[in-house]
Amino acid sequence: VAALAVFAVIKQKIKPLYAIIAIGVFALIDVFGINTKYLNENNYQDAAEYENNFTPSPADLQILKDTSYYRVLNVSQGISAAFNGGALSSYFHKSIGGYHPAKLSIYQDLIERQLYKFPNCLPVLNMLNTKYIIVPDQQSGQPMVQQNPEALGAAWLVKSLQFKETPAAIMDELSSFNPSETAVLYQKDKSAIGAIQYDSTASIQLVKAENDQMSYASNASTNQFAVFSEVFYDAGWKAYVDDKETPIFQTNYVLRGIQVPAGKHTIQFRFEPASYSIGLKAAMGSSAIIWLLLLGATVGAIRKPKKA
């Protein structure tokens, strides 16, 4: 229809206005046809029916009474479904499970090499701050809650460091190590990490948790090494101790670790990807150029002398 309308205009058989109207009408017909195919009455739900999908179970309600910072693993449908099934647990809780086709490869490695061995992956569950596990009740089959008292929280200070050459060696170490006392890092980072002296009275705690910023407070009499139960991602996350940037070390294969100097300090992780910063500056520069060109064109049009 569009081709015929344009051809008719070229041949001066119809006016351009009629061609635009014809194209517009048939475009609307085409769009309405798609809409009625994919957005008909079968694609809508009543509000009450929709909300029923997000009704918390008794297990969810029990967990939600805890207002601290923790994570949940739902294995009520089996360990495979925990990472390849629905995402309802993530609607109510900070979950270590759920499915997404674009996972970070290091976390997918952890799922396949460690978490799929559940329940024989307690060290990993502890370092991921998995405080609650939803399991099926053996009698009723309904979801019930098991609390993991060894979950390590948002951050902790370790007594010693181990260094391994390869990712496989680090992954193997996760099967039997004690994450509350030991951190496992890459051998290549050893020279960049100074000596630590564990202080039993030292402390570190989460102060604020947001999507793009995490804040902690630390206090120790000697230099420490802190492990943070957040996924390592060096394409954007930066760490600061008292607003001074410090390197982040890939720790326990998937987590973050930094050196913490003696004394009282404020520690922050901020998501500041260079791509976003560069893109923002480019967008602002492009907008400024466009406005300047428009302004110049306007001024030029005003000043242009009228023909006699």
Rank of each mutant, 00 (worst) to 15 (best):
K306F: 00
Q45D: 03
N40P: 01
Y50K: 06
Q45T: 06
G285W: 01
N40M: 05
M214R: 11
S57K: 04
L185S: 05
A301M: 10
Y91D: 03
Y44Q: 11
I96A: 02
A2K: 13
Q108C: 00
F271K: 02
A102D: 13
I290V: 15
Y107W: 10
I29H: 02
C121L: 01
G78R: 06
P273Y: 05
I258C: 07
N42T: 10
R303S: 10
T55C: 00
K13L: 11
D172N: 14
S191P: 00
G300W: 05
P56R: 12
S76Y: 10
A220P: 06
S76W: 09
A274R: 08
D242S: 11
L128T: 10
L17A: 12
H93G: 08
K103H: 05
K65Q: 15
I248R: 07
R303W: 08
A59Q: 11
Q213G: 01
H100N: 12
N148A: 05
Q146C: 02
D137C: 03
I267E: 10
Q205N: 14
M171S: 13
A27N: 06
Q138K: 14
G24E: 08
F32L: 14
N40A: 08
P58E: 08
G33A: 03
P261Y: 07
S90W: 04
I133W: 11
A282V: 09
S275G: 00
I34W: 11
K159M: 01
I96V: 15
M144E: 13
L157V: 13
S229Y: 06
G263R: 03
F26N: 09
Y91H: 15
Q250G: 00
I106R: 05
T298D: 00
L61D: 04
A283G: 12
A282K: 04
L294K: 01
L88I: 15
L73P: 03
R270Y: 01
D212Q: 08
S176A: 13
M214I: 11
